[in-house]
């Protein structure tokens, strides 16, 4: 009787441990990995209005490439626009920062009126792409539908403060969150 109790207790503990082991294995079956992607933008013009676009392509990410056949979900996590160089520094006007899908549909747009692009130079002055919940929903829906290419556009309007031409070089940084099966 006592030996039966011992065996019952042990078998219960053993199977509990094995069940736990199963739960641990399940925990390793999914991974949430964050994916950084960057895209450069370069405007060189002598006109008071101009624009340039940079392509944000998931296929440029080796992390995305590693997991693209195992993706459960992709969501937008964060995004910034940073100016790397502006010439001349006296440049002033309106700046429109926007994010569009491959079809040209604008997902996000922000207008800065009468600013100096020079003030966006550097990591400390970067502009955070603060998408609303609705904008995130649109972007996430397109990501999960298989859209891999997006366009980050910088448009300048009503520029002054230059004589012959000007140059604005910047880049978009985007972070996406992948949930993948491993």
């Amino acid at each position: 009787m006592k030996k039966n109790i011992l065996m019952t207790g042990f078998v219960t503990a053993l199977f509990s441990a094995l069940l736990f082991n199963g739960c641990i294995t399940d925990a390793f079956n999914t991974l949430i990995q964050n994916v950084p992607i960057s895209s450069k933008v370069n405007i060189t013009s002598n006109q008071s209005s101009a624009s340039a676009a940079g392509t944000i392509n998931l296929d440029n990410s080796s992390i995305y490439q590693s997991y693209k056949d195992k993706i459960k979900s992709i969501t937008f996590a964060a995004g910034t626009f940073t100016a790397d160089s502006v010439y001349p520094s006296t440049l002033q006007g309106d700046i429109v920062v926007s994010l569009s899908n491959a079809s040209g549909q604008v997902i996000f747009s922000k207008t800065f009126t009468s600013v100096k692009p020079y003030e966006f130079i550097g990591d400390a002055n970067k502009f955070n792409l603060q998408l609303t919940d609705a904008e995130k929903a649109v972007l996430n829906t397109q990501l999960n539908a298989g859209s891999k290419i997006f366009t980050g556009t910088v448009e300048v309007k009503n520029l002054s403060g230059y004589t012959t031409s000007y140059t604005i070089i910047g880049h978009y940084d985007v972070a996406l969150t992948l949930e993948v099966n491993t």
Binding site: L18, N21, T30, I32, Q33, A77, T80, T82, V174
Partner: peptide, 29 residues
Amino acid sequence: PKDGGAIYSGPNGYITYPGGIGESVIPMI
């Protein structure tokens, strides 16, 4: 946490970290 991988912004773009497995009790035999 599985969604606990952080994202850090800086001059060279984002630096990202993976999430964990979200477990507190580890068995072995």
